[in-house]
């Protein structure tokens, strides 16, 4: 397994959503395997420690704001140069905690859709517009197993816990990423997901395995597929 991990040395990774459990684990993974990182958080989730650690390659955006996303991506690219890996992460554990004590509402839906689905779209739109050169780049997106995660392994195995907003947004992200995958895989990108189940924090080994699978390109022939961490 170690030999496979060494392939990451000096790669450059841009991650959306650094300030949560998955974000911190991805940062650890990248640091240990020699990957250089740029991180984008939402202004509402700004982390001073990450800002101190990463300096100008740590930036925050106004959620759902296209100009803000483009500006921040350009700043990070100026600092880092080309990007090899793009990781889309949403603050899922925070949402799950919130929804334990919060009523479902139309307002919450709009917030979640923007912070999650729309920001994934904006980041990928910005990146793909900046890099249109047939170079092989890897996109990994995090999703929730509480939503519909596609027609491959585990089809229909949706975890019943959780909220309407999480289930609907996760399922929407699946559809959106499938369509985007179809558009950009022929340009050289690989696009695959990792769906987080109930006890995912205790299953980091699975998540790391899946992330490595997608980032190394070992699993490249799986197009738009999602690995489910139940």
């Amino acid at each position: 397994m170690d030999a496979y991990f060494s392939d990451h040395k000096d790669k450059r990774c841009l991650m959306l959503g650094g300030n949560d459990f998955i974000g911190s684990k991805v940062i650890d993974f990248c640091t240990e395997t020699g990957i250089h990182m740029g991180i984008i958080d939402l202004e509402t989730h700004k982390s001073m420690p990450l800002e101190e650690m990463f300096g100008p390659t740590y930036q925050c955006i106004d959620s759902g704001n296209q100009a803000s996303m483009e500006n921040v991506v350009d700043q990070i690219i100026t600092e880092m140069g080309d990007i090899d890996y793009i990781v889309c992460n949403y603050y899922l554990d925070e949402l799950r905690e919130e929804m334990k004590n919060q009523e479902e509402s139309c307002l919450k839906w709009e917030e979640v859709l923007q912070d999650w689905g729309l920001n994934y779209f904006l980041l990928l739109k910005t990146i793909v517009a900046r890099f249109d050169d047939d170079k092989k780049r890897k996109i990994v997106f995090f999703n929730s197993a509480r939503g519909y995660t596609g027609e491959g392994e585990g089809e229909g195995q949706l975890i019943p816990e959780g909220s309407i907003v999480e289930a609907a947004c996760a399922s929407g992200v699946t559809g959106m990423m499938t369509s985007i995958a179809r558009s950009i895989i022929p340009k050289g990108y690989s696009v695959n997901g990792i769906a987080l189940g109930e006890e995912y924090k205790e299953k980091w080994g699975h998540i790391e395995w899946a992330m490595n699978l997608w980032l190394t390109g070992i699993g490249e022939y799986s197009c738009g597929e999602t690995y489910r961490v139940y």
Binding site: G147, G162, A167, S171, G172, V173, M176
Partner: peptide, 22 residues
């Protein structure tokens, strides 16, 4: 199928399954 349209269609499948169990 364009991304937002398929987001809706897949969203429906997930929403349907979630509501059914909940």
């Amino acid at each position: 199928i364009p991304a937002p349209y398929l987001a809706g269609k897949a969203g429906f499948v997930g929403l349907s399954k979630h509501l059914a169990s909940k």
